[in-house]
Design a protein around this nucleic acid. Structure first.
Lengths: 221, 221
DNA sequence: ACCGTCGGTAACCGTTAGGTAACCGGCGCT
DNA sequence: AGCGCCGGTTACCTAACGGTTACCGACGGT
């Protein structure tokens, strides 16, 4: 997950960013409103954390500008301005959340995660090469053709997609699909084989890769 | 927008609900955790506002229960428990927001609106292919012909329509139609069969699709 | 009391999914 | 080279699942 942190107090920003990065949240940093807008123009973020009091352009203005250009990236205001009117103004600008300083980094983390996940939840789709998965619709396409998958193969595919492009170990798969059972290598072998047959059809680039002795990954060659 | 307010202090709840209703937010009210779960089993809400300290079942438990049954309705905790640990616990249970008492009703309203917006407004009409459902009038048409549905089939149809084109799992259906009963596959099978007979009449495109091992969806092929 | 409707149970059946076993081929190790 | 392990591939068998039909009891209106 990649977020943009716009905050003019460099020391506070650094502490916060350090903490978030320890929790596997990548952060870009902007020290004022204009810089934030520049970065927002170039990159796509999962969440934007905005201070309100910033040089050049204030946080409210940045948020309004973002919404004006039809960008619905979730915005969280992080500011010392704690009056009701400020909060309402923040939500009015199109923010999703509003957290007052001083704050606990853990709470910020929790809220950022919610905003980032909600976005993902709304989408609930995955695509790689010409493979498209509509998870909530439970549909799967390779190119133009729709593919039907049996239950367990679908489970495996979703699992792989969620970790893509990372490798998923056999133990992880077994744990996810057959919880609290001893690992049986054979059924797993067959399962992977069948999934591969189903989605890596001839004429398409193979996407299911087994790494010998380690596990399986869903990714480009 | 329809929300569920679960709060054991009746006076506070009433004030809040009055305010929200003035702002065009309809509210159902639950005075304890069990009542909240009952209402959540029957109805679909845009947002759930949960107190933590409630009789019978506390708010955290309700939220966990909701997530366990794969319901991703946004949850906002509204509670006097303002320690960091409580907040983190709340988010851990799967909440989207956490607001501490005492609170300003305007802020609650703003946050509820944010949570409710991600989801499309509750449709009272639904149409797909040549199938038209007037939910509030309780009428159903396939092409020009009006169809009468028995109560449970109607319930199922509305449930499927609300999730369309997404898949609805058997467990979800059972939970919605026969809350707090053990899942009986057979009655469900018959129910789906009868609904399909009623609306997927010969000459029309079939819209009720069962995905083996997963559930049912109302959608175009 | 009669009848029609509705929803649940049971039984049947064709299909499919997924597990087991057997075979094969390659790679790395000694 | 030879062996053994790992993973790919084929074949087969059974249990589970879903569609379908038939039947039955409950309920409500006439």
């Amino acid at each position: 997950m990649l977020i943009l942190m716009a905050e003019d107090q460099a020391d506070l920003a650094e502490l916060t960013i350090d903490y978030l990065q320890d929790e596997a949240i990548e952060c870009d940093y902007a020290c004022d409103g204009n810089m934030a807008m520049n970065l927002l123009s170039v990159n796509q973020y999962d969440v934007v954390v905005l201070d309100v009091n910033m040089p050049k352009t204030d946080g409210f203005a940045v948020c309004r500008w973002l919404r004006a250009k039809q960008d619905d990236t979730p915005v969280l205001f992080l500011t010392a301005r704690d009056t009701l009117d400020d909060k309402l103004l923040g939500f009015d600008c199109g923010a999703q959340d509003y957290l007052c300083k001083p704050f606990e980094p853990q709470e910020l983390l929790a809220r950022v995660k919610v905003l980032g996940n909600g976005r993902q939840a709304r989408a609930k789709r995955f695509s790689l090469d010409n493979l498209k998965i509509e998870i909530s619709e439970h549909r799967l396409y390779r190119g133009e053709k729709e593919i039907q998958l049996p239950p367990t193969q679908w489970q495996l595919l979703v699992l792989l997609a969620q970790h893509s492009p990372n490798l998923v170990s056999k133990a992880q798969i077994a744990e996810a699909l057959w919880p609290a059972q001893e690992v049986n290598d054979d059924r797993l072998k067959m399962l992977i084989f069948r999934l591969r047959n189903a989605i890596d059809t001839p004429g398409n680039r193979p996407l299911v890769h087994t790494i010998r002795g380690a596990g399986v990954a869903l990714r480009n060659p």
